[in-house]
């Protein structure tokens, strides 16, 4: 009897410890970034371009660049991903072809991001002659997050009860309208969750954009999607490895990381608020 209770408590302890470890690592990481980066944050830091070989000044062009690239990636990947998921989940006959497509999507999710970068360089920058620019970078990032969005959308579509589809089709409503009016609206919270993960990944990646979109330094702000931009993760990478002033710019590096993390978290927060609002409205 006692042994059983001991085992139960032991197991509970292990489970609690794992959960706590995750919470503490995340909290510790955020705290470390915050403490080290806060000193760099000022109005000038957020609104001015870098100067004096990037050892002084702000990071405004990089913030803007990351926002452009991330939004571009979502604009490209969200419709494509949702439509693919609708095809796979609602239309395609479940068989070998669909299995191969799913396998492909999963493989795509496992491809190292530098490979996406080289792919983007080869296809968009060189072959299609877009050059290194927002468009090439956003397309590359879009492909990078496509599997995340397809996966999340498929899960979300699967979670819509089959009885809703039957109810609509049983009324004599076409499949297309059933998907548009019943299935997609009810899958939306789940699809948004997928996009949140995608946004976080797209904003934080360095490798896919270093050949396709980001400039080492440019004080000029982009005026079209064919302009090169600075981006937060690449800026950190450049300052921390490639410059001659690595030690002097430590503060700027931490500050940039803090801004990047803050940016991703606030995008997440917006999406979470939208999602919980939709969830509250629709329940079954």
């Amino acid at each position: 009897m006692k042994w059983r209770y001991f085992k139960q408590n032991l197991f509970l302890g292990v489970v609690r410890l794992s959960a706590l470890t995750i919470a503490i690592s995340l909290g510790g990481f955020l705290f470390y970034i915050f403490v080290n980066g806060l000193g760099a944050i000022s109005w000038e830091f957020l609104t001015l371009p870098p100067r004096d070989s990037m050892t002084k000044g702000g990071i405004m062009p990089a913030i803007l660049g990351t926002i452009y690239l991330t939004s571009g990636a979502i604009i490209i990947a969200l419709p494509l991903g949702v439509v693919s998921a609708v095809y796979l989940n609602e239309y395609a006959k479940q068989g070998p072809v669909v299995r191969i497509i799913r396998l492909g999507v999963n493989c795509l999710a496992g491809v190292p991001s530098i490979v996406f970068g080289l792919f983007g360089l080869g296809l968009f920058v060189v072959f299609l002659q877009f050059g290194s620019c927002i468009l090439s970078g956003a397309l590359t990032l879009g492909f990078l997050i496509l599997p995340t969005i397809i996966g999340a959308s498929e899960e979300a579509l699967k979670s819509v009860p089959q009885t809703f589809r039957e109810a609509s089709l049983g009324l004599g409503i076409s499949k297309w309208h059933t998907i548009l009016r019943i299935v997609l609206p009810n899958a939306l919270p789940g699809i948004l969750t997928g996009s949140i993960l995608g946004i976080g990944r797209a904003a934080g990646e360095t490798a896919p954009i270093m050949f396709t979109a980001s400039a080492f330094f440019t004080a000029k702000l982009p005026t079209s999607i064919f302009d090169e931009v600075m981006a937060l993760p690449y800026h950190v990478y450049v300052l921390a490895t490639a410059g001659t002033h690595i030690e002097e710019t430590r503060q700027i590096q931490y500050g940039t990381v803090l801004v990047l993390v803050g940016l991703v978290l606030s995008i997440d927060l917006i999406a979470i608020v939208i999602r919980s609002y939709i969830r509250k409205k629709k329940r079954w």
Binding site: P161, T163, F164, E166, A167, S168, L169, G170, L171, G172, I173, S174, I182, N186, K282, R283, W284
Partner: peptide, 19 residues
């Protein structure tokens, strides 16, 4: 079949109103 289902309606075993 969509046309047929408009003329021949259906009520299911478990109540399935839309949300």
């Amino acid at each position: 079949p969509v046309e047929i289902r408009r003329r021949i309606g259906m009520v299911f075993q478990k109540p399935n109103p839309f949300p």
